[in-house]
Design a protein around this nucleic acid. Sequence first.
DNA 1: GCCAACGTTGGC
DNA 2: GCCAACGTTGGC
Length: 161
Amino acid sequence: MATAYWLLKSEPETFSIHDLENAPNQTTDWGGVRNYQARNSIRDQMKPGDRVLFYHSNAEPSGVAGIAKVSSAPYADATALDANDPYFDPKSRAENPTWYAVDIEWVQTFTSVVPLERLKADPELAGMEVLRKGSRLSVQAVSKLHFDRVLKLAKLVARGL
DNA sequence: GCCAACGTTGGC
DNA sequence: GCCAACGTTGGC
């Protein structure tokens, strides 16, 4: 199957692109997702090699901060099964997990964040889910066209353009 | 801190 | 199955 493209949201105060870059093996397990639509994307569609726009939400500024890639197949989210974990979900069972995670690996930290405002202003990004008013989904599919355009914007922003 | 836009819960 | 109440997300 062809490489897919995603946008993952994270609050940088909780876990930023820099945290990913500095993590052991520059990799982390993307768990704790507790939204069914996002779960379906992870469980049913994510695969190793997929590319990820790493988005900082509730940030100054909010925007795309870098690139990562999916580095594992989907697996049962262990945080849902651990009674001591803040993301524990008593309804999830090891033999029939409700929630899933994947590993993601750092690829690139942008010289500076591509701000949401810049994304909004770009005609080529029209229709991108993250630009929809009230968009709260933390795992979003992104078209290759939009993914490549964001990379291009990152280069422009890095040059002060 | 405010508040709009959601998703979930639970009474009926 | 409906829908009001509630909790959360996230831009501003």
